[in-house]
């Protein structure tokens, strides 16, 4: 079952991705940041500042290696919120 706050986080993540995506397009949970939205490492770093501010979290750079889809990103943020 989807955790209760997942949907709220997902909604905010989509808004941030739409703002920063080099190749804007429709976004779903399975959308890939690099292949579908055209993110490169610099653009991801730029967005991470806003992600950290929006959720008041610290996003460890180690997590980037496991980040592929919007669902991954949302789940990572949820986990960080829950464990902090």
């Amino acid at each position: 079952m989807t955790p209760p706050r997942y949907d709220d986080i997902y909604k905010q993540v989509v808004e941030l991705l739409q703002e920063y995506a080099p190749q804007p397009g429709p976004i779903s949970e399975e959308t890939e940041l690099v292949n579908d939205l055209g993110f490169d490492s610099l653009k991801v770093m730029e967005m991470l500042n806003d992600v950290e501010d929006a959720f008041d979290i610290t996003y460890p750079l180690n997590s980037l290696s496991d980040l592929k889809t919007v669902k991954d990103f949302t789940t990572q943020i949820l986990n960080i919120i829950e464990t902090s």
Binding site: T58, P60, L61, N62
Partner: peptide, 13 residues
Amino acid sequence: ACKMSGAEMIRFR
């Protein structure tokens, strides 16, 4: 070096 270390890696502005 940070990647090689295996430590948790946090960036500040």
